[in-house]
Design a protein around this nucleic acid. Structure first.
Lengths: 187, 187
DNA sequence: ATCATTTCTGGACATTTGTCCAGTATCCTC
DNA sequence: GAGGATACTGGACAAATGTCCAGAAATGAT
């Protein structure tokens, strides 16, 4: 859990506090196509991507719809499920081999009450998460598939290179056929 | 701010804590069409709807798109802006005369540090907000306009009665023309 | 390197949804 | 309760996007 450790060091956790945090976290390896969270089951962990590419998706009428992607160095969770302990609306699985640092809800709560400063970190994390989801929701409402593609091309070209186009298409809310059309127009 | 007071009493705040909370909040009246937040400006307040109906919207190519609605007894905020202090992506305005209890970010932060238990309330509020936004985002991805209408009809018929159809249409992500089509089919 | 598998592209056509608009219906004001 | 403003419906047509599919390209396993 090198990456996670560095992350917490960078935001100012040291010594005992850092130790307590890292003790509460487990490191799990995932093979390509392994599930982290299954739609309909309660998400047990909040994760941090040490390595690999992870896909969030839902089955709709037998077709898989990608709702989100996580790359290295970002937090991963079926937030709604983890937070409310209700069944997850989506599944998460590894698209490549990879590793996750995972923390359970009970361990997280313990850190929140026991480690000084952790509550504020958790608040900041929640606020950051809200901003991400809200911005994404905003884009879904305001932009067309084509505009979302253009935005991605501009703002996260590294993601675009990592994600197979079929997944990218459903993330953008269009069919692969239509993404092909969009890409054709750009050229 | 009767409704807000009752809300905090119900979740267990009393005496001095409750007083401190209410002292940090201001009550503002809004006339129909008054703005609470303007797109492009930083949202100064987190609000609670004492009365009235409030609409979140964005202008897209000269057309207004409704992104959300708040009714009595719910929390109102351009969350992303309030939390990150970046310019708001959407405007919020009163669709009817109404009243809001408002708290500034600095006052909120003060409550978080000074009032026992308030930090936990704020965490719960953030978590609850995340669930709401995440579920809404999920619906945007997974459901069609027609299905979103059906869901609303089933789960929040009271909202449906209060919201003029033109706003409802853009909330569902369709044109009024198409909503009319959808409603025609249901009959 | 070869073959099999998976992914990507783009044609032809179908469906969904949007645009424009005119006719009603509803609501508000005096 | 009459007149004007605003909101709602639905026809005709247009544009955007989906479905189905076959061939090309890329990737992976032996």
């Amino acid at each position: 859990m090198e990456k996670l450790k560095k992350y917490f060091e960078d935001i100012g956790f040291t010594g005992e506090a850092l130790e307590k945090i890292l003790e509460s976290v487990i490191l799990i390896e995932f093979k390509k196509n392994d599930f982290v969270v299954e739609e309909g089951k309660v998400a047990k962990y909040f994760g941090f991507v040490e390595s690999g590419l992870f896909q969030y998706f839902v089955m709709v009428d037998g077709v898989e719809k990608t709702t989100y992607m996580n790359i290295e160095g970002t937090f991963l969770a079926s937030v709604l499920s983890f937070v409310s302990q209700k069944p997850a609306l989506e599944s998460i699985r590894a698209l490549t081999d990879g590793k996750l640092s995972l923390i359970s809800r009970s361990n997280l709560k313990k850190l929140v009450t026991e480690v000084p400063g952790f509550k504020d970190f958790y608040i900041a994390l929640l606020e950051h998460t809200i901003c991400g989801i809200d911005a994404s929701r905003h884009d879904l409402i305001v932009l067309t598939g084509e505009e979302r593609y253009a935005k991605m091309l501009k703002e996260e070209p590294h993601l675009l290179q990592q994600i197979p186009l079929q997944y990218l298409a459903s993330m953008l809310g269009v069919t692969p056929r239509h993404l092909s059309r969009i890409r054709g127009q750009v050229r």
